[in-house]
Amino acid sequence: MASILSVVERAYHGTIEEQDDTILWLSHMIKNAGGDISLLLRGNAVNYAVLGQDATGLSFGDVKLEVAPTLDKDVENLISAGVTTYVVQEDLEERGIKHEEVAKGISMIGRAQVADLFDSHDSIWHW
């Protein structure tokens, strides 16, 4: 089976749609289906690893979003499920995010190592 690197860079687009990030969700589905998948968060998607995100409180008319996204927990759940999850360190630093703010179990890599990560996977799913 081919090893897949799922690269996520676009962030915060699914809050009212699926109460998920669509690609974190799909990556977890692929893992559950037996896929050999790792995850790379780069660009704005590094913010998905930040603990303490809160998207509650949305209400339009008398319709409330009862189940809000918990993207930090989704990242933690991916890690717990055995999906090795990488974050580009420079992308964190550019956004003022400190290492202690991100989920435990995240693997930090430098930008210069992204090419190594691509080389070590058979298929790149760059979303």
Binding site: A2, L26, A33, G34, G35, S123
Partner: peptide, 10 residues
Amino acid sequence: GPPDLLKWSN
């Protein structure tokens, strides 16, 4: 669903 994508990809 996504499992079909995985199967196809493999």
